[in-house]
Structures are given as structure tokens and as C-alpha cells.
Design a protein around this nucleic acid. Sequence first.
RNA 1: GGCCCCUUCGUCUAGUCAGGCCUAGGACACCAGGUUUUCAUCCUGGCGACAGGGGUUCAAAUCCCCUAGGGGUCACCA
Length: 488
Amino acid sequence: MSQPIRVRIAPSPTGTVHLGLCRTALFNWAYARRFGGKFILRIEDTDHDRNTAASERAILEGLTWLGLDWDEGPDRPGPYAPYRQSERVARHLELAQQLIASGHAYRDFSTAEELDSWRAEQEARKQRVAYRGGDRNLDAAESARRAAAGEPFAIRFRIPDGETTFDDLIRGTVTIPHHEIDDWVMVRRGGEAPTYNFVVVCDDVDMCISHVFRGEEHLVNTPKQILLYAALDYPVPAFAHLPLMLGTDRKKLSKRTGDTALSDYQEKGYPREAIVNFLALQGWALDGETDLFTRDDLLAHFDIRNVSKAGAVFDPDKFRWMAGEYLRREDAETLARHVAPHAQAAGLLSAEDLRARWPWFQEVVGAVRERLTLYGDFPAAAGFFFQPDAEVVYEEKAEAGARKRAGAADMLNAYADALEAGALDGEDLAGATKHWIGERGAKIPDLFQPLRLALTGMAGGPDLFESMALLGRESSLVRIRTGARRLA
RNA sequence: GGCCCCUUCGUCUAGUCAGGCCUAGGACACCAGGUUUUCAUCCUGGCGACAGGGGUUCAAAUCCCCUAGGGGUCACCA
């Protein structure tokens, strides 16, 4: 294995950017970066109705956002361009012809109807037999003549007798008997459209891919491809089949049991490093003790050989926890910057407000940071700071709690009076307030609970005095007076 | 159903290749305490697993065999 390390991710641009794709990309990327290889992005857009330009863009943006940079790709031309499979079809067809000439492939003139009836026969016989096309042994000259006459055909790979054994970097030795494998279609009837299993190998060959790391669902495809490498007379790359990411139903992660799109997590405000960290933990562990590790830790220790074999059930709770860990480690400035888009999206304040009151905004974020798990939690946690003073939204539970305090309204008014009179001025408003409560023969919650309601409308929240400072004297007083009125 | 892969706490996993350091470690979740003006954060403690059965060995989570369970795959989709 002295050849240079070149790994790749080959997503098809259909739909959203799936977390499974992100993890496969991450492992390929990490391997390339750890061992000084190249990471290639190739778009698998073999002509299909589902391919969209928007999806291709989403893939490039998503991977870029995650910080998984590639060395060669559709937007980053390298020595093996182009990096979009649809642009390489001429080459695929050329190789297909070459394989017909060498006898590794043959033209199958079977019609769709013939195929259907063959399949029906299998069904009836209750026993599956691999497809060996009727035209498999057609005389070469005859085959060429019919093709020249314009008769439509598909090109199939000729699976020899025997079995294929290969060494999987994660699973060890895997053997699959050939009688399980169809003579598979390399080029569809019509002669213009090559299939996935074919182009993948053609392109991996042409791009000198040394290691193929992909999902376990491709494990049984591997013999087909290995046989093709041999037919093309090209060294077989190393393979590693990653365990699948499973949903809570223990089946391949899908929308059935939760969010699977990277964009879902971006929109909810998961820190990107938390996503990378969590994805890495799906099948790989740094040392078994440390769950939280940096990208550098990953790059210093990652090896595909340490990836586990068993599928990993995706645990949304642990993912959220991890997001919170990363979020809370951010400094005030960074956190505020990450939270700002969510505050705007929720209509809390405009871009201009944000600019004009940036230092204040940072302090507000700082006041609630312990209550955030995701950036997107900010509007719910700190929304009250942005509500009109006379219209603070009271949560039912909070209001009920405040009403249980006898004389809550009077208490609030009296407290407002004291504040206005400057009776509590000084360094320590919290201490002065507690002293004030004691003088009146009341208990702390008698004031604090209604006060919290008046100020924030919530039952929980940041420190009351910090909140008042952030709200400002005027706003605070209006809110307290309003609270007294509403509780009366 | 055939074939292939997999199997340690509910979940993610360490330990398995090189059998003894494992009365199986960490984390999430959960439960119970503590800190706190509330909520949250934070701290402490608890609960909790080697799928089952046979071997091999002085010794097995670790090696071998069988069984069971789960998953993947069987397209002119990718």
C-alpha cells in the first residue's frame, strides 16, 4: 500500500444532506487528514430524475459548514477533473466497450418483458438464482451484428463461478459466493446510461482512489466491484464498511424516527463542533473515557480500523447534551454571534437593533447562557427582554405561583415605591432588597415570585437583579407597576 | 426466504486482535441528595450490561462451535 492515500465521498444530489452522509464524509476526511492523503468530493449524478442542482449546492455548503474541506471536487478542479459523474459518461461508455471486447461484459438483448417473466419464474420457484442473461454466451460476431442492426441492448458484467473474498478494514475477512450475484447491468438498455456500481468503479479507478470507506449497505456490492477492478486490470482499493447509523427503531436512520437532515440541526442551533464530535462518536471512540474532544484530537487519533462493527442507534438526548456542552464553553462574543440569527429570526430585534445594542445584547446572552442548550433556545429563554414593558407575556404556571402570594400586588407597589425613592440605591441591590423584605416581616418568595413574574413573565429565568440591570430602571419600574395592576 | 454483516448497562461506548490488571470502566438518560431568590448550570451518590448453550484453558467479555435475536442486501435506484 505504498500508493498515495486518496479517499472520497460520492454523494448523489438528491434531497437533503443526510447525517449519515456527513459522518461518512467525516471519517473519510479525518483519515485523509490524519495520514496525509487527499479527500475528494465527487458528485454522483448519474442521470436521474431526482438529481437537483439545489441539492448539489446543499451538499457543498453543508460539508463546508462542517469544516470538512476537500482537496478536489466540482468546485475545486484537480488532476482528475471533472468531478461530476454526469460529465464523465463518455469515459464510462468507452470502458464498457473495452470490457465487451475483453469478454468481461456482454450485450443483453433481453426485453423488459422477458426480464419480468424471468423474475416471475424465480418468484414461483421460491428459490432465487442469480441472473445469467440468455445472451451471455451469444457468439461475439452475432452480438455485434445485432447491435449494429440497431437492436437495443443493455451491457452486463459477466460474473464468473466461484466466490470473492476480501479484507474489510473494519470487518475483517468477508466472503460472498458468486451464485448470489447477478450478471449486473453496467449500462442500461439504450446504451447511454451507465449504472451506479459501474461508474463508481470507473471513477475510483480514474481518480486513483486508494481507500473506499462507505456505509455497510454497500458491503454486498463489493464483490461486484472487486471483480470489475480485476477486469479493468487495476489494483483493488482497501475497503471499510462503516456501521449504519440507526434510528430508535433500530433500522437505518430515516425520517421515520427523527430529524436526519443536517439543516434541521443547523436551524435548531446545534454548534457545528458538537455535530462533528457527536458524529465521530457514532462508531468511533477516542479512548472510551472521553466523550468531548476537539477536531484536533480526532485528527490526532482517528483510524478507520478502530471503528466499531455494530450499528449505532442515534441518541437525540445525548446529541442535545453535547450541543449544550459546546454552547456553554463559548465566550460571550462568540455565543452572542451564534445566537443573533436566531434572535432575529424569532423577531426579537432587527439587524439595526443588534448593531446598535451589541454590547447590551451580549450581556443578555450572557445572562441566559446557562439556560441554553441550542442557539435556538434563546428566544424562549430571553424573549422577555424584548417584549414591550406593558405587555410582558405571563406564563400560566408563573402567574398562578405569584398569585398564591398574599398581597403580591401591594408588595410590588411598595417595592416600586422604594426603588423610586432611592431607598435601595447602592452597590448591592440584591442585599438591600432582602433587607427590605425582612424589615416588612415578609419572606423572600413573597416578593421574588411576583417580581419575577412582573419582570419576566416566567417561573424560572436569570438572576432577578441582573435582569433588572439589563432591563434598565425605567423598564423595570413600568413592569413592576404593571405587574401590580395585573395581579390586583 | 437465500446470502452477508452484527450482538458489553435503555442508548453511545472502553475492554475482544496479543485470555489473567474486569467483583466489566466512562458518558447520555433516569432516580436521590446538595448548592441557588426561581429555572437552569454545577457537585455528590445510586440504578444498570458481557444474548443463550456447549467446549478449549490453571484462567474467557476476550479463543472455537452451535442456537437465538437484530440489521443489511437481493433493480436496466443510488
